[in-house]
Design a protein around this nucleic acid. Structure first.
Lengths: 327, 327
DNA sequence: CTGTTAGCGCATTCAG
DNA sequence: CTGAATGCGCTAACAG
C-alpha cells in the first residue's frame, strides 16, 4: 500500500485536512479533543508528512545546498562536519552536490539545486567569476567560500596573508634569513595569496625568498628540497604552502642529514593531524568553523539580513619543534 | 521578481505548458519549430525547472538520503566520497542527515527524509533492531551499513572477523604469544565483532588475550598501555580495535622505552593515512568502495530488484614495521 | 474552533 | 503534434 497522506489521516479522524495540518504544525487553534483524535489516527496509520509537498506549498525546503569541488579527505569532512553541526542545530538538512569538474559541471550542479534548497553554499576556488555569475540562480541566497570574486554575494575567505605574515615574523624572530618557499599549484587562489604574502613580508625585512614550484603534495615538497640540497643552495628556513609539502621537505632534509630546526626550520599550513604527530610548526585553519560560519551567514540571509561583504577567516600560528628547539 | 516558471515560458513561447514540459523532457513529440521557440524563451527567461515540483508530480526525487552517525573525519569523508562518486555518476544527489544522537535522533532524521528522497542509506552500528524497524519508512528502499540486524533490508557489513583473523594469524607467525586487545566502545557492533574474532582465533591456538576497555580514540589507547606498563603486565602484542588507539599505544610504548616490534608488536584497524606514516601494521578498509557499493545496491533496488541478503565487505591485512622488522 | 477551496510548479492523461 | 484539465500532498487564506 502507498504511504498514508494527510487526507487519510483526516478521514480516519473524521476531521478536515486543514485541522490535521494545523494540529501537526503545532500550536494553532485546535480543540484538545480534535487534537487527540488526530494524534491517534496519525499513529495508527504511521503517517509521516511528505516534506516535498510541504516545501512546494510552504515555499521553504528547510534544506541547504552545498556545492564543493573535489577536496582531499581531511578538508572535505571537516568543512562538511562544521556545516552540518550548524545546519542541523537549526533544523536544516544538507544537500550535497560535489562537482567533479570545472565550469560546466558547476552550472549543472547549481541548476539541480533549483527548487530543492533555500540557499546555497558554494566553494569554487578555481572557477572564473563570469562563469560563477552566470551559474548562480539570481534569487537564491548564497554564501561563497574561498572564491575569486564575490560577485555581490556574501563570501568567506581564509586570511592566507595573515597566516603567512605570522609565519615570517616567527621565523625572523628565530634568526632565520635565507628563505625558501614551496609554492602551491599554479592557478590556485590560496597558493597565490600565500606566496604574495611571503614576498611582501620578507620584502619589508629587506629579504627575498627562493621560490620552488609545488603541487600541495608530499612528493612535491620532497623533490624540491632534494634538488636544492643537491645544488648546494644555502637556506635556513623552508615555508611550505601547505603541510603535506612541508612533510615531504622534512623527509628530504632528514635524508640529507640536515638538522631541523637548527640548520633549517620548516613550516606548513593547514595543521592536518599528521602535522601534530610530526611536531610541525604550521598555521592552523579551523576548517569546521569555517563551514559553520558559512551556514550562520546563510541562515542570517534566509532570515532577511542583507548579504554582508567579504569576511576573512583568521587562521592561527602553531609553533612546534620544526622551528623552535624544545627548551 | 520571482523565478520564472514553466507557465512564463509557455506564455512567452506562445505554446501550452504541456508542450514546454514535453520539449524539456527531451524526446517526446514536438515540432522542431515549437522546440526552437521554447528553447529561446527558456534562455531569455533564464528558466530553470523546479526540482521540488517535478518530484511531487513525477513521484521521483532523484535524491538519496544518507543518515550517518557521528564519524571521525577520515571515515566520514571517505564513505561520503564513495557514495557521491557512484550517486552522481547516476545523476542522484545526496541528502545528508548526520544524526548526532541515539534512537530518537535517528527516528527524527529518517522522518525528515520522507518525500525528499527515493531511497535511504543508513549506517547505525549502535541502534537496536527494534528501534530501527520502527523508524524506517516501510515503503522506502533502504540499504543498511554496519547495522546490527538487517530487518529484512539489504545490508552491507564489514567483515570484521576476517580482518582480525588475519591479524592474529600474522602475529602468531611472528612468534607472539601474549596478547592485549584494546577494545572499541561498548555497544558498538564493529568493536564487538572484532573482539569476538580475536577471542575465537586465539582460542584455537590455546591462548587468551588481556582485554582493555577503549573508545576508538588515541587517548584511550595511550592510557590503556600506560597502565599495563605501570602494572608490570607482560605482553608481546597489542591488537587495537582501530588505528587511532594503536597510535596512542605506540606513543605509550615509546615513552616507556619498549622496543616495537621486537618486544611488543602493535596493530591497528582502518588504515588511516596516519597509519602509513607511522608504519603501522593494520587492516585496510576500503571505505569509499563500501559507500559506493551501498549506492549500487540501492540503485538496483530502485530499479526494481529485490533486496538482497547480507553482503560482506572484505578488508585486507597490511603488514608494516610495527609487527615486522625491516629485512 | 473548523471546513472549503485554491494554489505551489510540474507531468500527464485525454481530447482535439 | 498540441492544448486543457487533473492531481501529486500539503499549507494558507477565507468563510462559517
Amino acid at each position: 500500500m502507498a504511504e498514508a497522506t494527510i487526507r487519510d489521516v483526516a478521514r480516519k479522524a473524521e476531521v478536515s485536512v486543514a485541522s490535521v495540518s494545523r494540529a501537526l504544525s503545532g500550536a494553532a487553534n485546535v480543540s484538545a479533543e480534535t487534537k487527540e483524535r488526530i494524534a491517534r489516527a496519525v499513529s495508527e496509520l504511521g503517517y509521516i508528512p511528505h516534506a516535498g509537498a510541504r516545501s512546494l506549498s510552504h515555499g521553504r525546503t528547510h534544506a541547504i545546498g552545498v556545492v564543493l569541488p573535489d577536496l582531499h579527505g581531511e578538508f572535505f569532512s571537516e568543512i562538511v562536519r562544521g556545516m552540518d553541526r550548524e545546519a542541523s542545530a537549526n533544523d536544516y538538512l544538507l544537500l550535497l552536490s560535489p562537482m567533479h569538474g570545472g565550469g560546466r559541471q558547476a552550472t549543472t550542479a547549481l541548476r539541480a539545486m533549483r527548487g530543492r534548497v533555500d540557499g546555497l553554499l558554494l566553494m569554487a576556488p578555481h572557477i572564473a567569476p563570469e562563469e560563477l555569475r552566470g551559474a548562480l540562480p539570481a534569487n537564491l541566497p548564497a554564501v561563497l567560500i574561498n572564491t575569486r570574486s564575490s560577485v555581490g554575494r556574501t563570501s568567506i575567505r581564509l586570511d592566507n596573508a595573515a597566516g603567512m605574515r605570522a609565519v615570517v615574523a616567527h621565523l625572523l624572530a628565530q634568526g632565520k634569513r635565507h628563505f625558501v618557499h614551496l609554492r602551491g599549484p599554479a592557478g590556485n587562489l590560496d597558493a597565490q595569496e600565500r606566496a604574495d604574502a611571503i614576498t611582501d613580508a620578507l620584502d619589508a625585512a629587506g629579504l627575498r625568498p627562493i621560490f620552488m614550484p609545488g603541487n600541495f603534495e608530499e612528493s612535491g615538497g620532497h623533490a624540491a628540497i632534494r634538488q636544492l640540497v643537491a645544488d648546494g643552495t644555502r637556506f635556513d628556513a623552508v615555508i611550505a604552502a601547505n603541510d603535506m609539502m612541508a612533510i615531504g621537505a622534512l623527509t628530504a632534509l632528514r635524508q640529507a642529514g640536515v638538522e631541523v630546526p637548527r640548520t633549517v626550520a620548516v613550516t606548513g599550513f593547514d595543521d592536518v593531524p599528521l602535522a601534530r604527530h610530526l611536531d610541525l610548526t604550521t598555521v592552523r585553519v579551523r576548517i569546521a568553523d569555517l563551514g559553520a560560519e558559512a551556514i550562520v551567514r546563510l541562515l542570517a540571509e534566509l532570515g532577511g539580513e542583507r548579504p554582508s561583504e567579504e569576511q576573512l577567516h583568521q587562521p592561527e600560528l602553531v609553533v612546534r619543534r620544526t622551528t623552535e628547539e624544545p627548551s
